[in-house]
Structure formats: C-alpha cells, structure tokens
Amino acid sequence: MNKGGKGAQKLFTTSNGQTGLIYPDFISKDSENRIVADTKYKPIENIGNRDYLQVLAYMFRFDAAKGYYLYPNNSDEADLQMNLNQGSSYEKNIAAREDISVTKCGLTIPRDAESFEDFVFRLVQNESEFLEKFIGKRKE
C-alpha cells in the first residue's frame, strides 16, 4: 500500500529522527529466517541493477538472507536463484556466497487459453502452484 503511504519502513535513524522511507512489498514475520520480496510488473529480462539494489537494501535493513522478485512470467523460464558475490575484482577473489541469495520467481500467465473461463481456470492453477513453490522455498 505504498501509494497510500501505508506500510512505510524507516531506512535510517539520524540525530534529527528517522528518514528514508522504504516500502517493501512483503516482509516475513519470521524474525529468525526473515525473507523479503519485491513485486515487479515487468518481464524478467527487465529486472536489473536498480531492482537488485532495492531488494538488497531491504534485505540488509531487515537482516534477511533470502530475497525474492515476484513477476509475471510469460514464458516457461524457470526460477533463477542468484547468490550474492563476495570479494573484489581488484583482488581477484570473487566467489559466490552461499548464505545470501535473491531469487527471481515468476507466476506463469496462460498464453494459449481457449476462452476467458479457460484462462481464469489455468491462472488459478498457476497461482496455486506458485504459492506452493514460494512457501516451499521459504521453508528451505
């Protein structure tokens, strides 16, 4: 509800108070295994640099080791898990971290429905599969 200003979280505390409003789409209530998710209404190939920085800021702010992009998937593309790198190209010691990841997780949109009713039926099935997949990942 970020357009209405509801659900705002403070990013920083300063000597003058708190500042830097952020609006994560989803924050789990499990403080031991916190996850955050950001919804993007654009194709997976358009999720990039600024989006990465945004979800990483949310993850850092809420001590989350797992972050997700949720997006409408218009292909059969599988989820893409990306592990955060550590090290520096200057020292030539870049390696993937196993403890921090961001996953692009798509909700498949039916493309070849024969009718509106068929589209709705298939979308409800896809939503159910998406939810199970997402809940299953959260438990890992």
Rank of each mutant, 00 (worst) to 15 (best):
F134G: 02
G87Y: 05
V120R: 07
G87K: 04
I100K: 12
S115Y: 05
Q81H: 00
R122T: 09
T108A: 10
I109A: 03
L80C: 06
S89D: 01
S115V: 06
E77G: 08
P110S: 04
T103E: 14
E127K: 10
V120F: 04
Y90D: 08
E91L: 12
L107D: 08
N83Q: 14
D118F: 05
A113R: 02
S101W: 11
E98V: 08
Q81K: 15
P110N: 04
S115M: 06
N83V: 01
K92L: 07
L131T: 12
Q125E: 15
D99K: 09
L107A: 08
A78H: 13
Q86V: 12
N93A: 04
N83K: 13
T103S: 10
R122I: 01
V124F: 09
A96K: 14
Q86T: 15
L131G: 00
L107Q: 08
I94T: 09
E117V: 05
F119S: 03
K133A: 04
N74R: 14
D112V: 01
T103W: 02
L123Y: 14
L123Q: 07
A96N: 10
K92A: 07
L80F: 09
N93I: 04
D112F: 08
E127R: 09
E127Q: 12
T108V: 14
F130V: 06
E114M: 03
D112S: 11
E77V: 09
E77K: 14
R111N: 13
E77P: 01
S75P: 01
A113E: 07
F116P: 00
K104L: 15
L84K: 11
N85A: 11
M82C: 13
S115L: 06
G106D: 04
L84V: 15
L131N: 08
D79V: 02
E117Y: 00
L84T: 12
A113M: 01
V102L: 06
I94C: 06
A96H: 07
E129G: 00
R122F: 02
E127Y: 05
L107W: 06
D118A: 10
F121G: 01
L123M: 15
